[in-house]
Nucleic acid binder design. Structure first.
Length: 740
DNA sequence: AACTCATGCAACCGCTCACGT
DNA sequence: TACGTGAGCGGTTGCATGAGT
């Protein structure tokens, strides 16, 4: 009942606004306002003195000429000003008209009328505060001369008149003022003037239509379309109420904000506070939708914003935050900042961070450089490892994301930007740039932990688009289409095979690698941070978005994947693959000048797997790790069993990332899972070299505190497992993860 | 000087979520 | 519980600008 009253009240208020604007519009047209003729008589007096006008018929002809001149010269200014009633546009129109009016008398008359109209309108129409603002911002400057037609258009626009009505009104006041002058000069009597005016109005309408038609032809594809589109797209238009058009007439404005609009919005927020953005338009006279207002305030106007480019420290923090959270821009900008003061990005907006990250990603991608410096990854890894080796169970506090983030992800004081842009200083990059794949392989896993952590995290779809034309289909042809779903199915059934263009030594190991397709490659947050849910989709959705043919390899590459039963690489693998196209340069020679994270990952994983094959214990460890891969989503996990659990029994398409995650926890109650937990890992020392490689991938690539905390997998206690995973869920929940 | 291209930024769009009815 | 609405978030796009040719 209460809300109904409020709705009714709102409706009444809206209707009241509409009526109020109508009154204002009528008052604008009323002759009391200085809308025209008070300053001059359109040359009628001179024409009478020159005996050009001798009778009412002559006057009628003369008025038609006046209307014609008005229509051709001034209506465009009225139109443009009414269409876009903001300060900048008005000033531009004003200057144009000032340059156009070469007749000094006309120019002075126009300025005189316009100045008066602006002054009076700003004082009278207080419901349109921007009128006053515009006037004050232009008084005393040479930014505007206050010509009449643009001022009239501005007032009309701000009073909610559409452009056609504004122009008609301008024609009307011209006509009216001309007849007022004729009456004043006793050329016609009041009654005769009224009759004549009524007759001429028909001609005026015809002229108006003609000018409107001409203008719409000229404006085709420009502003006109923008505004008309706005009108169509306006939510208010859909709602059929006045939310989008004040008084049911005016459309919402789009595009860049003007200083006047900013001033109005700031003033509104000062008075009413933030929030309730949809009412901004109603109360401030801004012709902007609530969303636009909120965005403008949040990203540009709020006082606590920090302007200017990012400092190196801020850049490091962003990298750090992204490594932990993924594309959670708003959270990066706000929530974590609140939770972890020393990680805060003060005054930075989500949009700003997002733009920075996307730009950075593109830049590094082009350079074939990793997104995450190895220091970030290694630091986190070592922190975790140290804790494990000390037999220190992580307590609840340790699972706190704050703690984790602050303790494990203190970024070393390194100029990441510099590093990233300078391959020469990156050991892992050097390896890949300067060494062949086979030689790199021989170097073992200890080469650089960072290597597995360097995969870019650009949006899958985007990654695909950017590399779409590079990849060939299975038939060797360039594939540009969207894959059919059965292709996706084939992926899981291993009917389609391929490789990264690497030579056979990697094949058998990579089959394991492929089977990690339930997870993601390092650096990806598709599963872990919930990106999979809304934007990045679940694995299959992501694949659909990815247009998987891009991942298909040429015929000549198929065998290298090993057996035909080898599933294709994970989607995120594919993402990474896209970043590092299987060009010839990335082939067995492995000397891609643009080596990307994927290649590094593949080489690294290959080394790791090759090394692990020599030790059965490593396989055991693998199996253990594999059973956790759903949660950790590392591509380096050998997770055949996991894949069977989560991909075969339950199509990945039906599983969000979080569901995969949760299913891999004891909470899920899955017996399979429990079995997995019972697999006791090898002692850390025995498998350290290999496990290090994997751990670092798990811990640092998984990009979320809960996952990073998963380094405690190796704890032997089931109780601990339960605790751990409970905490993990808590952490995920705390982070607003996708877990139900 | 003119043109092209890359880059950064601002704004919009579509979607999801929370909340109230 | 279903529905409507407002707010917020993440992805994308379009434009302005500057560097390079």
């Amino acid at each position: 009942m209460e809300s109904k009253k409020e709705i009714d009240g709102a409706k009444e208020e809206t209707a009241s606004m509409s009526y109020s604007l109508q009154w204002s519009q009528w008052q604008l047209i009323d002759s009391i306002l200085p809308t025209g003729g008070f300053a001059h008589s359109f040359g009628i007096e001179a024409a009478i003195q020159a005996r050009v006008i001798l009778n009412p018929e002559d006057f009628q002809t003369y008025v038609i000429h006046v209307l014609e001149n008005t229509g051709s010269l001034l209506l465009p200014y009225v139109y443009s000003a009414a269409m876009c009633p903001d300060l900048d546009n008005w000033r531009k129109l004003d200057r144009m008209l000032d340059a156009t009016l070469t007749n000094e008398v006309s120019r002075k008359a126009s300025v005189s009328q316009g100045s008066a109209l602006m002054r009076v309108a700003a004082a009278v129409f207080t419901e349109i505060p921007s009128l006053k603002t515009m006037r004050e911002m232009s008084l005393g400057s040479d930014m505007a001369a206050f010509h009449h037609a643009p001022v009239f258009g501005i007032v009309c626009g701000l009073l909610g008149m559409d452009s056609e009505t504004s122009q008609r009104a301008y024609m009307f006041i011209t006509l009216r003022d001309a007849f007022s002058a004729a009456t004043r000069l006793n050329l016609v009597g009041p009654l005769g003037a009224a009759v004549l005016q009524h007759q001429v109005s028909i001609a005026a309408e015809t002229m108006l239509k003609r000018h409107i038609h001409e203008m719409s032809s000229m404006m085709n594809g420009t502003e006109d379309n923008m505004w008309s589109k706005d009108r169509r797209d306006s939510p208010a238009a859909d709602e059929g109420i006045d939310g989008g058009m004040v008084g049911g007439i005016s459309p919402l404005k789009k595009g860049p904000w003007t200083s006047v609009e900013d001033a109005i919005l700031i003033d509104y927020v000062k008075k009413h506070g933030e929030g309730n953005w949809n009412s901004v338009q109603k109360h401030s006279g801004l012709f902007r939708c609530g969303k636009s207002c909120r965005l403008r305030w949040a990203n540009h106007l709020r006082p606590d914003l920090k302007k200017g480019s990012f400092t190196p420290e801020e850049e490091n923090r962003i990298i750090q935050l992204h490594a932990n959270m993924g594309n959670k821009w708003a959270r990066m900008a706000a929530e974590v900042g609140n939770l972890i003061p020393d990680l805060k990005l003060p005054g930075r907006t989500d949009n700003e961070i997002k733009n920075y990250w996307n730009t950075r990603t593109k830049r590094l991608q082009r350079a074939g450089l990793p997104l995450y410096p190895p220091e970030v990854c290694l630091q986190g890894y070592k922190m975790n490892k140290d804790g494990q080796n000390m037999g220190k169970l992580q307590t609840g506090d340790a699972h706190d994301p704050d703690m984790m983030l602050t303790e494990h992800f203190k970024i070393p004081e390194v100029e990441f930007k510099t590093l990233a842009l300078n391959p020469g200083v990156l050991p892992y990059s050097t390896d890949l740039f300067d060494a062949s794949a086979s030689s790199v392989l021989k170097q073992g896993v200890g080469l650089s932990y960072g290597q597995g952590l360097v995969l870019p995290t650009i949006h899958p779809a985007k990654r695909f688009r950017e590399s779409q034309t590079i990849f060939t289909g299975l038939d060797g042809s360039v594939s540009t289409g969207i894959p059919e779903f059965d292709q996706l199915t084939d992926y899981h059934h291993g009917k389609i095979t391929g490789n990264f263009g690497l030579s056979s030594p990697y094949g058998c190991d990579l089959s394991n690698y492929e089977q990690s397709s339930c997870g993601v490659l390092p650096g990806s947050h598709a599963i872990l941070n919930g990106n999979s849910s809304s934007s990045s989709c679940e694995p299959i959705c992501g694949a659909m978005k990815l247009e998987l043919p891009s991942l298909q390899c040429s015929e000549t590459q198929q065998d290298s994947w090993g057996t035909p039963a080898s599933p294709l690489p994970s989607l995120e693998s594919a993402d990474a693959l896209i970043q590092s196209p299987p060009t010839k340069e990335t082939n067995s020679d492995g000397q891609s000048p643009r080596s990307s994270g994927l290649l590094e990952a593949v080489l690294y994983e290959s080394r790791a797997l090759k090394h692990s094959k020599k030790s059965p214990g490593h396989q055991t460890s693998d199996a253990f790790v594999a059973n956790r891969c759903g949660a950790h989503s590392s591509p380096m996990n050998v997770c055949t069993a996991e894949w069977e659990l989560h991909a075969d029994l339950n199509s990945p398409s039906g599983h969000s990332a979080s569901s995969l995650f949760s299913e891999c926890t004891p909470i899920s109650g899955s017996s399979s899972d429990e079995q997995a937990y019972n697999v006791r890992p090898e002692p850390i020392d025995q498998v350290l070299s290999y496990v290090e490689a994997r751990e670092v991938l798990h811990q640092t690539d998984c990009n979320r505190p809960d996952v990073l905390l998963g380094s405690t997998w190796f704890a032997p206690s089931n109780k601990y497992h339960n605790d751990h995973f409970f905490q993990t869920d808590d952490v995920a929940a705390l982070l607003g993860g996708d877990q139900p």
